[in-house]
Each structure stands twice: as C-alpha cells, then as structure tokens.
Design a protein around this nucleic acid. Structure first.
Lengths: 359, 359
DNA sequence: CTGAAAGCGCTAACAA
DNA sequence: TTGTTAGCGCTTTCAG
C-alpha cells in the first residue's frame, strides 16, 4: 500500500539495481557484477549487453550493499581539531589528493576544539564506517567508554605526535626546526628573547619550545631568561602576548611565536603600537601558512610542507591497508624561510657576545 | 579454510553483531534492534539484559547494513571548489555544526578547482552514499554522462548561485553589498576606480561587479571609466593586478577587490612599492576572512556571515530531508566593515563632483 | 563462461 | 511485549 516516492516528495525514480541491469541484459546478477569488477571473466557478447544495460538504466552500484558484503567502507576518517584553522586546509588537500587517487572517500571529523565531539567519531570507527583514520588532533579520541585505537583500524597521526602512544606519525621535526630559529636569531645578534606558546599539552608546542630553548642554551644563553607567554595556536594569543610585551620595561628584541597565526596577531598589535619590524624587533613564526607571506613585513617562519604531510599520511594508511602491515612513521624536513620580519638586533640593545669561559 | 584475521594482520576481533548481542541477552535480534531504536517498546527486563550485552560485547551497529535497510546514508556531501581556500573553512564549520547536531556525517568533495574531479562525486550521489548535497562550487557537477541534479537527492547551493538553475541557494546579496562599497568610496571623494575581478563566469563575480557598477552609475559616474583587472579569487590575482596598477600613469585612487584574498595580495604589493594605504590609495575587499583584519592596515571589507551561511545551508537540507519539501533559499545580510584601508581621496586627485547636467 | 544460491548485518512487518 | 521472517543490493563460492 505504500506509495513509491522518495522521502523528498519527488517522483519515485527508484535507482536501478543490479537486478534491473541483469534483467535488461538477460544475464544473471553475477555476470553483471563480474562485468563491472573483473571484465575479463565475461564473454564479449555478455559484457557488451551488460555495459549497454548499465548505460540505459543509469545504474550505479549501491555502496552500502557493496560495503556490507565486502566488509569495508572505502572511506577514511580525518579527525581535525578545528576545521576553520587555516593551517589544516592545505594538509587536507594533500590527504584528499592521495585518497581520491586510490579510490577512497574522506569523512571529516571536526572536533571544533571540543572533546565531547570525539565520541561521535569513535562510534563511526567502531561501526565500520571507515577503513582507516588520520588524526590531527594530537589526542586519541575516546567516548562511550571506548578508545578509538581499540577499534582495530589502521591509524596514524599527522602534523603532530601523541604523547605516550605507539601510533605512527607523519610530521616535521619541531625540535630541530626550532633550534634553527634560535640559531638564526642569535646570529643576528639578539640576546633577549620572547617565546609565545601553543597549548602546553600539545606535542608540537613541547617540541618547539624544547628546540628553541636548546638552541639558546647551545649558545650559552640561559633559556630561563627568555620571556614566555602561554596561549594557544591563534591570532588572539598573539594579540594578548603583544599587549603583555608592550607593557614590559625591558623588552626582548626577538620573538619566536609557536605558530604563524600567533606571530601575525603579535605583529599586527605591536606594529599598531608604533614599533617597527624588523628594525625594533624581530619575529619568527612557525608553519609557513599562505598569509604569512602577505603581512607587512612578510613573516620569517618555518615552512611545514603541509601538502606533503597530508599526502604522506594518507599514503601510509593506504599502504597499510594494502599490505596488512602497520603504517610507517615519516619525518619531513621543515626549512627556515628568511623573510622580512627578522634583522640584526637594534645596536643599543645588542649585548656583546659573552667571552667563552675557560670551561 | 580462511583464517580469521583482518586485512591488516591484526588479531581477528570480528566486531560484535546484533546476533552476538541477541544471543548473549537471550532475546531475538529484533528485540536488540528495538532496544536501541525505540526502548519503550521493550520490557524493562529485556532492555536491561540487552544493554548489558551491548556493553559487554562492545557492540556498535554496522552502518552499511543499517543504511542498506533504511535506504539512507545519514551523510551529506559538501562539494567545495578548493578546500585550501581560507574562505570555505569557516563555512564548513557552520555546516558541520548543524549536520552533527542532526546526526548527519559530512563527506567533503574537494574539486581542487578541477572539473575532472566532479565525476567521482556524481557517482557518490547516484550510488546512494549521501542523502543530500551542498554545493559551493557555483557549478552543477557532472560526469559519466550524468548531471548531479538528476540523482533526485535534495540539493542546495551555498555562498554562490548557479546561473540558469533552479537550485535553492543560501548566500548574501552580492549586488547590494557591492553597491554599498561604491557608495562608501564615493562618499570619501573618490572618483577614479579600479575593480579586480574574480572568474568571469562566477556568479559572485557577476553580482559584485554589477553592484559596484550600479553604485558608480547611481552617482553619475560612468562605470566604463573604471579600470578592470581580470582574475580569480586568489592572492596571485591581487599581486598581478597591483603590478599592472603600478604601471599605470593615471592611477585610480580607490580599488574594489572582488575578494579579500585579492585585496590582500594587492595591498602587499603596492605597499612594498612605496604607496601608502589609505593615504595614497583606498582599497576594499569582500568576504571578511579572518586575516583581513590582520594585514596592515586592516582591510575594509564586506563581511559574509560564513558560519551562518554554512548553518543555514545545512539546515535547509535537513529540513527538506525531514518534511519532504524542496530546500528553501535564504538571502543573508552582508555588512560593510569600515577599517583602515579606506580614507578620503588624496586632495590633489579628488575631482570636483560634476555639476548635475540639465538632462 | 555463466547461473543459482547463500549470505553480509540490520530493520520492519506480521504473528503470536 | 516478543520472535519469526523476509528482504535491502551486492559479491562470491560452487556447480554446471
């Protein structure tokens, strides 16, 4: 008694099924299936008839049915802490490139910086709706009493590692890159530093801070003499750090911001207060987002190969899916991009390098 | 003879099915299903046993099976021209907010500005893998001889309309907003204008250009006297337009860029060439992306309520899915944000307003 | 080379 | 209130 119409009130047009095609081509559904999956197994005549029927009916295989049979979804879940963050966009593009090329679809799991949102994606994974997971959240999603890692699905983290976890990761060497930042600033004669932090529990933050401090220490500078501002990876953190910076009597001459967004927020604020960059103050960011080049002056920064990170992460998963092995970690190079926001320390403030002590 | 192991070589741990739960709770699978879907239909005793069994087995319903039965996917496809474009990130967040709240998942269809990529998503829709589609590409995807609109799935466009199509759209009034830009610039005494275009076939571009020209015309200025640069919505277009602008002998004093990215590229380039903004030159963008506020000076622009657009678009689809009606169009307000990049026209170049002719 | 038939895991009638 | 049963659309043995 039920009327044949879609839930949307449009005329029925029930999508063609494999049986419609089979009937029309006067073969069995098995032959249709074979024609589409392994054409060589089918006679030319049958194949031709099937193909014609497919065209005539506009048949597209139903994915739910196929997945139910094949016990796979041809989908990868990408968990991102906040989809509005400009940094992730290009990474996503890299992931998408690689995934699409291998026939996988991409489901975005946006946490919007809220842990409550994790549960939903944990369920998605346990429900078998995705074949693999790429994590950009720096944190293993959990919810409803389950950890996502327990679902037995290949997983990898990208852009960031997860503390105390055995998950493979695809990322740059935050520590080494940050040491290079310190060296660069030191070579310009800076001796008084500021560091604007990301979230304290984020492993990128941990690596960057450690690298920067190590770089200072290597030059005989006490890392604890630097000024540290807490924060997160956002423009607002840069703004607030700048306000605090401006209130300082003895200001650093060089600032390392743990992300470009922080750096850009900082620059904008101190510039408006009348400071000149890089004459009065040098500043370095991290990430190499597109806009870092378009602020004035352009921001010296560490370039993360975001597209490559995305591709490599996706590839690691695809390979794991194909050969049944665990995904492999990859560490990528992150070069320092020298641009307009760094220059020699102001002469007046430049301390004479300490003479090397006898021991 | 086949070994029970996942394709990934990990120990089998076949996910629990509804039958495992039923067996353990000593009820039928139907009762398990009911317990999860309509708990009130089940006796307290049975429900308790089922719930316990669910917990014990770690059961999560298989989505492919459920979708196969229910003939719906609980997924919405969002087609975006280029996922790396900062503009879309916040729109996606709005879409995601609304979709997640209604239990839908989101599949990203990134075209990466390549038409070839459309076919894949057309198939996805015809394969019943999504229940609805949100289009940000300004173009109806097609491929394999099919138009996506023919799949009989609720669709809407957001941020942009599609020429000659009946698809409902959720967007701002490009034309009206751009007229406001012209009025603003005119009120500052500018009389010589430049306009940097997006892609000529893009309906946002069409609307913005028309609005701007209408605004000029309304003030008795011949729109054809303005300088027009072709391009796309990108930083590079701004840079190239700026180079062309700098080579001009008789330069406009006010520039309207069809997007913030264009405006930012332009600003950076002319600033480096020594021009002062807004003293020498006023510039207005369109979109209100986050970074438009952090360039120096901050960019006067039209703010698109991106998060709201995303939400409204998703909502239109969800409503359509629920009540079986076609999605409804929505036109949102887009205010002009007065910031630092616009000021009175340089006195020397400011033309005396023409005296109104007698006819 | 081809067809018949058995499910994949779930839900919705229909009976009881 | 509960169980039985019949598929959703597809792939894949197993025979022929």
């Amino acid at each position: 008694m039920k009327k044949a119409r879609t839930s949307n009130g449009r005329p029925a047009r029930r999508p063609a099924t494999i049986r419609d095609v089979a009937k029309r081509a006067r073969v069995s559904t098995a032959t249709v299936s074979r024609t589409l999956a392994v054409p060589d197994l089918v006679s030319d005549a049958a194949r031709a008839r099937v193909l014609a029927a497919v065209k005539a009916t506009g048949y597209t295989p139903n994915v739910a049915a196929r997945n139910l049979r094949a016990r796979r979804a041809m989908m990868v879940l990408v968990v991102v802490p906040n989809i509005a963050n400009a940094f992730f966009a290009e990474v996503l593009r890299g992931i998408d490139d690689e995934l699409v090329a291998s026939g996988y679809g991409i489901i975005i799991g946006n946490l919007d910086n809220k842990v409550e949102r994790e549960a939903r994606y944990v369920d998605l994974v346990f429900a078998g709706q995705v074949d693999a997971v790429l994590l950009m959240s720096g944190h293993i999603p959990s919810g409803n009493g389950k950890l996502m890692t327990e679902a037995g699905v290949p997983m990898a983290t990208i852009c960031v590692a997860i503390a105390d976890s055995a998950l493979p990761s695809v990322m740059v060497d935050d520590r080494a890159a940050s040491e290079a930042v310190a060296e660069h600033l030191l070579s310009l004669g800076h001796r008084r530093f500021g560091y604007i932090s990301g979230p304290a529990d984020n492993q990128n933050e941990v690596g960057r801070r450690a690298g920067f401090r190590a770089g200072l220490a290597a030059a005989g500078i006490d890392p604890d003499r630097a000024v540290y501002w807490p924060g997160e990876f956002s423009l607002g953190t840069g703004v607030r750090a700048a306000e605090s910076f401006l209130a300082l009597s003895d200001r650093p001459t060089a600032i390392f911001a743990a992300s470009d967004t922080i750096g850009i927020g900082f620059m904008k604020t101190v510039t408006e207060a009348g400071l000149r960059i890089p004459e009065d103050l040098s500043i370095v960011g991290f990430d190499g987002i597109e806009f870092s080049e378009f602020v004035t002056p352009s921001l010296t920064t560490i370039r993360q190969p975001r597209h490559d990170i995305g591709r490599a992460g996706a590839r690691a998963l695809i390979d794991a899916l194909a050969d049944g092995a665990a995904p492999k970690s990859v560490l990528l190079e992150a070069p320092l991009l020298l641009r307009g926001s760094t220059a020699r320390a102001p002469a007046a403030l430049r301390e004479r390098p300490k003479v090397r002590r006898s021991r």
